[in-house]
Amino acid sequence: MAGQKIHSAKRKRFITNSVVHVILGILALIWVFPVIWVVLTSFRAEQGSYVSTFFPRSYTLDNYIRLLTDTTILNFPQMFLNTLFIAVFSCILSTFYVLAASYCLSRLRFKMRKPYMNMAMILGLFPGFMSMVAVYFILKALGLSEGNLIKLALILVYSGGAALGFQIAKGFFDTIPMAVDEAAILDGCTRWQIFTKITLPLSKPIVVYTTLTSFMGPWVDFIFAKVICRANSDQYTIAIGLWNMLQKEYIDSWYTCFAAGAVLISIPIAALFLYMQRYYVDGLSGAVKG
């Protein structure tokens, strides 16, 4: 009698488990499908955006070769370097700003602390690029809207509001016990030393997370780059380039190259993401063991 009961419970669990796995399998397929499709398209030999088969009829590397060598219409290598340059520098700036602001708001008590946090909340409610036109005018007034200075302009714009996004890093710093700081001060540390020698090393996950997000913002941003670059095609970033490839005049001849470009810019992000996945989850849930 009892054995039968255990048996049926086991069977029930087996059925639920199988159902869950089937559901997960279907969902995973839905989520992975477009990714696979892009990868397949990037190796497809037939040109054009509309095909009747899921798997390409023949495979080729020409799309990648053309993307990297054909620089007459859309200069992909140049765009790649532009984007890398902009992303690296604005990543350094924004990471520093975010961490510095979060540290101050979390560990120091000063008069502007509450007003600053309220201001950040209010500014966060305005649509991000409501002021885009105004930013463009300001950049123009500063003389940054032409030639290579556009890169500098983009770096400034991307890191401009960075310090307003301090919430996650601040939340993490909040979990580090105050006792650590107090002990360090008793030992004669200055607060600057605490920041650089204690807080930052203790907060590896959030430093990684901040760096990652600050790098990815400029790396994949499309709209600011488009408004600020305007017609300066030598300053285009990858996002604008890829977007152009899908415009009516290019889509038929460039569609497979678009897929190749998409794969190329996804590889660094994918690598970073997989490597940082652990930190990403830890960073958000705040997990320093004091």
Binding site: V32, P34, W37, W219, A239, W243, A262, I265, S266, I269
Partner: peptide
């Protein structure tokens, strides 16, 4: 499987 789709930048997957 799910995180993989994060790796493709949002604007690329949206355009696709």
């Amino acid at each position: 499987c799910f995180v993989l789709s994060c790796a493709v930048p949002m604007f690329v997957s949206l355009l696709i």
